[in-house]
């Protein structure tokens, strides 16, 4: 039973919903922020770090029941996946794009998070 639970069970929609609403920013990734195990996940971690954002992270490689459930929940085929204020924002490419356009700062602001980039570098904003 425990084996079955570990390898075959999938988290329910309600369980994922609880996870994504647990913090303002929630990331599903491969590996952990201290040691991402995929370049895409690493990029997301670096971007969030630049903005000084604290977030919940969930390692899909450590939890098989999570990996497919998350993809089904968001209807998005790849990991990492980022949620802000309980809403699915996108994966690595969209985060990168939002970071470059400045939209990420706005999106964080809507969630009541002030990006540290605003204080650090005014020029970054104009980009």
């Amino acid at each position: 039973m425990s084996l079955r639970k570990a390898y075959c069970s999938t988290k329910s929609k309600e369980e994922i919903e609880k996870l994504v609403k647990n913090n303002k920013v929630v990331v599903f990734m491969k590996g952990v922020p201290e040691q991402p195990q995929c370049g895409f996940s690493n990029a997301v971690v670096q971007i969030l770090r630049m903005h000084g954002v604290t977030y919940d992270s969930h390692n899909v490689l450590a939890d098989n029941s999570l990996r497919q459930a998350v993809k089904d929940f968001s209807n998005w085929p790849t990991i990492p996946q980022i949620y802000i204020n309980g809403e699915f924002v996108g994966g690595c490419d969209i985060m990168l794009q939002m970071h470059q356009s400045g939209d990420l700062i706005e999106e964080l602001e809507k969630a009541g998070i002030r990006s540290v980039l605003l204080d650090k570098n005014k020029n970054e904003e104009k980009k």
Binding site: G31, Q35, P36, C38, G39, N42
Partner: peptide, 16 residues
Amino acid sequence: FKLPKNWLLRSPLQAY
């Protein structure tokens, strides 16, 4: 928390 040497190079590359 201390990272092992070359972790950046090692882990994603290995996984890849």
